[in-house]
Design a protein around this nucleic acid. Structure first.
Lengths: 131, 131
DNA sequence: CAAACATATACCCATATAGGCATGCGTCAA
DNA sequence: TTGACGCATGCCTATATGGGTATATGTTTG
């Protein structure tokens, strides 16, 4: 089997950076396709396709306005994502408390592992929309 | 171009349901690959592959234990996801509050009109950040 | 040492992606 | 009405996926 369709759920739809950018842009209010293409620096067909995906998972809604189509965010489907990820909040907090202790235990282990962990910590701290 | 690699970031890694299940299972504590295959009802190679992806994005860490390999969660990379999704919490809350309040006035109206009005409401709501 | 066990990899395949490009379709202007 | 505009779709390609199956690597036991 191939990867699950991007239209399967919010998890998959939002995995694409461009689509996150689109949502971020729409967070400020309704925008037409043309506005988005300009903001994102993407070609119009690509924007329309991303919007289609977002629409199919319910993350955006459309409204006709003359010859334009105004899109707006519907954050509801993100609740599921937030809920799932939220369960791990406890874990990543605990982790920071214990990190020092863990590093000590690893003192004798291979450097590779230590580096990995330290890297993960720093990476995790930085804000969203990687790239 | 094809879809971004699953190992690109936590967003992509976690888009796969199986991998979320793996993390959920590991949330209870360290588990060996064999334990996971049994819990998930997946074939061993598939589990190993999913674990590889999770490892590459730093969501799990490994520890050798005899001929077994014990995996554990590192939730840190999920912070980025949580942070991004969290920005929308405000939106999905406001939305439902206001919609409910006005729905009464709309009782009896045609759907088309109702939709338009709802749109206006949302548009008005999202006054925040313009960029 | 050989055999059993635990895990990781290597392949093979069907599938859907994301972008590039061309075009179809509805809407507004002259 | 014709043409310009705004957007959606269709088609094409390279790529990576996730599962299936076979096998390599490493570890413990007899």
């Amino acid at each position: 089997m191939a990867r699950a369709a991007t239209t399967t759920d919010a998890f998959n739809a939002v995995a694409e950076p461009r689509r996150r950018e689109i949502l971020d842009a729409l967070a400020g209010g309704e925008l037409a396709v043309g506005d988005l293409t300009e903001l994102l620096g993407l070609a119009q067909p690509q924007v329309s396709k991303h919007l289609r995906v977002l629409r199919e998972v319910g993350l955006v809604e459309v409204r006709d306005d003359g010859r334009r189509r105004l899109y707006r965010v519907n954050a509801a489907p993100l609740r599921a994502v937030h809920a799932w990820v939220g369960q791990y909040e406890r874990l990543w907090n605990e982790r920071f408390d214990l990190i020092d202790g863990v590093l000590d235990e690893l003192a004798g282990t291979e450097n590779e592992i230590r580096t990995d962990i330290e890297t993960d910590i720093e990476t995790g701290i930085e804000t969203g929309r990687g790239d």
